[in-house]
């Protein structure tokens, strides 16, 4: 059975989650609930803690305080129902199709079912002609599309993406956004960080605004982009808050 057919592990509940690495408090007291099936976009200046928050939610990092709960999991292991696409695509040193096949084998998808899933994912990401090429020889944008195709083949209930289009060209970005939207149509919950406000407007159903490790605002996308409630979020939308310092910003 694929993850998508199983009962959902959502909602995801964060309760007073903090993360301290060394002597630095990097995520501070974040509480929120993320529901199926919208696209949740995490925005915020560089160093706000977007990547750390995604890793915490995905279980790659453990919170120093607070709790992260998949309320729907009800005792089941939530990990096999999730997938993540990282800022820099990580591909194994084997062919394009073998990369997806490996991921499917880890999820115990029977061999006879894999071929169709691989073909479908590669077609979707526009990579079918590269199926037998070495994954490491693809361009950066193609590699990121492959990383997304690999996640898609897994049919996760929840997909995390950490600035997946940060360093790729508009055409590849377009393909990636299309796949993300298609996945949402199929019922996958998307939780994604981006620094690209245009992209956030195009994709978001819901926005989390992060600043210096704190969750400053959680709003519906339409409301957020019309008029954010938080002053820092307002500054961010105006393009005045490119780094996490409040430098030239005068507090209200």
């Amino acid at each position: 059975m694929m993850s998508a057919d199983a009962p959902t592990i959502l909602p995801l509940e964060l309760n007073a989650v903090s993360l301290t690495l060394g002597d630095k408090r990097l995520i501070k007291d974040i509480s929120c609930t993320l529901e199926a099936p919208q696209i949740t976009i995490i925005i915020g200046p560089n160093g706000a803690g977007k990547s750390l928050l995604l890793r915490l939610c995905h279980g790659l990092l453990q919170p120093s305080a607070g709790a992260i709960d998949w309320r729907g999991a009800a005792g089941r292991n939530p990990s096999p129902h999730q997938a993540m696409v990282f800022q820099r695509p990580v591909l194994l040193r084997r062919s394009v199709q073998a990369n997806i096949d490996f991921a499917l084998s880890l999820r115990k998808v029977p061999r006879r079912r894999r071929r169709a899933l691989i073909e479908e994912a590669l077609t979707r990401a526009g990579l079918k002609r590269f199926a037998k090429s070495s994954a490491r020889l693809l361009s950066f944008g193609e590699q990121q599309r492959l990383a997304l195709a690999r996640s898609w083949a897994l049919r996760p209930q929840v997909l995390f993406l950490d600035e997946p289009t940060a360093s790729i060209d508009p055409a590849a970005t377009h393909v990636i956004e299309e796949v993300i939207l298609a996945m949402r149509e199929e019922g996958t919950k998307i939780i994604m960080s981006t620094h690209d406000l245009g992209q956030a407007r195009r994709l978001a159903d819901e926005v989390l605004f992060l600043h210096r490790g704190r969750l400053k605002e959680k709003s519906d996308a339409a409301a957020f982009f019309a008029a954010p409630k938080n002053d820092l979020a307002q500054a961010f939308l105006r393009g005045e808050l490119l780094w996490w310092q409040r430098r030239e910003l005068t507090p209200p």
């Binding site: 194994l92 490996f102 991921a103």
Partner: peptide
């Protein structure tokens, strides 16, 4: 390079 991706995919230490 691989650790996070492999853990994300659910790979066991032996794998």
């Amino acid at each position: 390079e691989y650790e996070e991706q492999l853990r994300s995919l659910g790979s066991t230490p032996l794998r």
